[in-house]
């Protein structure tokens, strides 16, 4: 069968709503797109450990500390699942990590913002994980088996993350004036970046076309963003938080909340390495990786030594 016939068959499978697996034939362009998208996702989980990891040692109670630590640990676990999923496409985790450290691979730009207050742990859990859930719930229905299965498992944990974030903020909003001011400051800083997490507006999203054609993306960036806004605005109001958007208004006819313009210049600036923490995030990851080199080498040397000893004994 020639490539055109294979492609036709693949398109038909997708049209029938079938799931495809790593060993199945797939268009090379799609394989590349999947590797790019999934590795970005895995990198985001791992880099995403940093802004929250920043507060584990300062969490204000033992209960909060344990919840936060468990959450950040989950993010590491998500990174592992997704790296394993992307390895099924014939790439190695080490190479993907090298690309991240060399600045060739991207990760979610939201993690290039600093966590300045404890209430940021609330904002990240509620807004960042909340946005991730909206994205990932549709990815859980995507056509690539390993990705869809990873998303189902990950979404369950993300729901707990979102809940703990909202609980941090609602407790603070019911607290002292200083606590309320901190919670509001966090929303002021994290609201717009969390809307940017859905990516550029549809007309500026070059990778979306292939991914939608082959059933990886099932909803457009703008649709998902709107779903998130509609869900989140009432939650903010319920605990007395103000959304930092003077243009925000509810359209009774459409039933949607309408927002003011997103600052896409800021978005592209952060994507291109000029966010407040881009350099620090990559430097921290690279430092951990470089400092850990001798440990990984020791583990490999031990495994080789002992597998050959065992072979000799056998």
């Amino acid at each position: 069968m020639d490539d055109a016939a294979k492609l036709k068959e693949f398109d038909d499978r997708i049209a029938r709503g079938e799931i495809f697996e790593p060993k199945d034939w797939m268009p090379e362009r799609l394989r590349k797109q999947l590797i790019r998208m999934m590795s970005q996702h895995a990198h985001s989980e791992v880099v995403g450990m940093l802004p929250e990891g920043n507060w584990i040692t300062r969490a204000p109670s033992l209960r909060r500390k344990m919840i936060l630590l468990a959450k950040v640990q989950d993010e590491g676990g998500h990174g592992l699942y997704i790296y394993s999923g992307v390895e099924s496409l014939g790439v190695r985790r080490e190479d993907l990590i090298d690309e991240l450290h060399a600045g060739k691979a991207k990760y979610s730009s939201i993690f290039n913002y600093p966590s300045l207050l404890w209430s940021d742990m609330g904002a990240i859990g509620w807004l960042v994980d909340g946005a991730a859930i909206v994205n990932q719930t549709t990815l859980a229905k995507c056509s690539f088996g390993p990705y869809a299965r990873a998303m189902i498992r990950i979404c369950k944990e993300e729901n707990f993350h979102k809940k703990q974030g909202y609980e941090i903020l609602s407790t603070m909003m019911a607290g002292t004036p200083a606590q309320r001011a901190m919670a509001q400051d966090s929303i002021n800083r994290w609201w717009w970046p969390s809307l940017m997490m859905f990516g550029p507006t549809d007309k500026d999203s070059p990778n979306s076309i292939d991914l939608m054609r082959w059933g990886i993306k099932r909803k457009s960036n703008d649709d998902l963003r709107q779903r998130f806004i509609d869900m989140t605005v009432p939650q903010a109001h319920a605990i007395g938080l103000t959304i930092p958007d003077p243009a925000l208004k509810f359209n009774k006819e459409t039933g949607h909340w309408e927002i003011g313009p997103i600052n896409w210049e800021e978005f592209f600036n952060v994507i291109n390495g000029n966010g407040p923490c881009n350099k620090e995030r990559i430097a921290a990851r690279k430092h951990a990786h470089d400092e850990g080199k001798w440990v990984r080498e020791a583990a490999v040397a031990y495994a080789q030594k002992h597998s050959s000893l065992e072979r000799r004994a056998a």
Binding site: L50, I56, G77, L80, E291, V295
Partner: peptide
């Protein structure tokens, strides 16, 4: 907890956090 996000390999970040 200080290791969280800074371990020599991702598996170890998870183990030490655990």
């Amino acid at each position: 907890a200080e290791w969280c996000g800074h371990g020599p390999i991702l598996e170890e970040d998870i183990a030490l956090a655990n």
